[in-house]
Design a protein around this nucleic acid. Structure first.
Lengths: 207, 207
DNA sequence: TTTTACTTGTCGGCTGACAACTAAGTGCGT
DNA sequence: ACGCACTTAGTTGTCAGCCGACAAGTAAAA
């Protein structure tokens, strides 16, 4: 057991350093943004040398892709899909809000990093923009689908445009979160999103 | 009249170049963001030399402040305040949305620049963050005030928390606009905000 | 002629990249 | 089990390019 400490597999070394590098990069980008994060700072915060990032990823752009993959993977895994389960319409949307608030409560750093990356949509790598566009489009589609299902079940008013409503819904989450990240003391994200969730009953629900 | 062209006052020269510089800076920041906009590029796009920006503003930070002042001044002038006029409650909010949609329609570049600057809240100049925090807090306060007035007039349900609702309202504008700026073809900002405006009747209004 | 607007030359600091080097892990023959 | 050659992981030296800043110069107005 003490052997395991002193002598690690090459694979283990790579995995550990890779993780450390990406985590450090995420933390730094969340703090300062992509442009102001240097490769040297990433390596050193990770507990390695300034040169390891380049050695491992080749260049800064590749690192950004790796980070994006990691965050998006982590996101889609434990985000909305599983929890919504069988629900549709307003209850489904409320469940998503609750799950999101839970994520904000547990890991504000992760949320901050996520939003920092969303900002890179207009950054130096045009291809990133497409990826983030697709990401948003996918989220809107899922939400619109839930609304449509609610309409089919007769729980959501028929005169609601699902696509427009999905855009508003995603917009509320994004917009309120932005305000909260900018000024945590002044913005009650829990209160705002809870009230929005409650208002969905009267704005979307049938009388 | 041809004299006016060839011989300008020093004051006129300064005013013209100042305007050109700030406009160029806004355009470039809207395109690439603050960090990736160089002082040389600003000067040259404005039709002057690479050095004029530094000569005029001293350093990049001062330029950022000048831009911020200009945009915020222009914003508060012709934005919500005058149009809302005597309205309160839901109609006031709908008027704001309409005015905002109008602004998006007329000058998308200006909106884009505004949002690019909002992103600088986490940038290299901490003082910028405070300014933007205050800006948001002010907007939320105005909106909350309108909602409170609507409650006093009996047009808005009493169980609505004005502050939470103001956060949601501002969040919708910000969040939907972000989606739209990111992917104009895929997001119908007019449809989304119009539907949101209509839904305010049922979510905020008394029965 | 003097002041003010603007331009050009130049420099130092920072950053990403690469290449040469050291350290750690691995497989093989004995 | 053991040591030795080999591969892979990680570090340090170095450099070229970019950018903001400043200073010394030129053009335009007063």
């Amino acid at each position: 057991m003490s052997e395991t400490r002193t002598r690690r597999t090459q694979a283990e070394r790579v995995e550990a350093s890779d993780r450390a590098l990406i985590d450090a990069a995420i933390a730094l980008i969340a703090e300062r943004g992509y442009d102001r994060t240097t490769l040297a700072a990433i390596g050193e915060r990770a507990g390695y040398s300034r040169g390891l990032v380049t050695q491992r990823f080749g260049n800064k752009e590749n690192l950004l892709w790796a980070i994006l993959r990691q965050i998006l993977g982590r996101w889609s895994t434990h985000a909305m899909q599983p929890r919504v389960a069988e629900q549709v319409g307003v209850p489904a949307l409320q469940t998503i809000l609750a799950a999101y608030l839970d994520a904000c409560d547990k890991g504000p750093d992760r949320i901050r990093a996520y939003y920092a990356l969303l900002r890179e949509a207009d950054g130096p790598v045009p291809a990133i923009r497409n990826t983030i566009q697709r990401l948003h489009a996918g989220e809107r589609k899922s939400i619109a689908e839930l609304i449509r299902a609610g309409q089919a079940a007769g729980d959501v008013r028929a005169d609601v445009d699902p696509d427009a409503e999905a855009t508003v819904f995603l917009g509320v989450m994004r917009g309120v979160t932005m305000q909260w990240l900018l000024h945590p003391k002044a913005v009650d994200i829990l209160g705002a999103l809870t009230q929005y969730g409650a208002s969905l009953n009267s704005s979307l629900g049938v009388q």
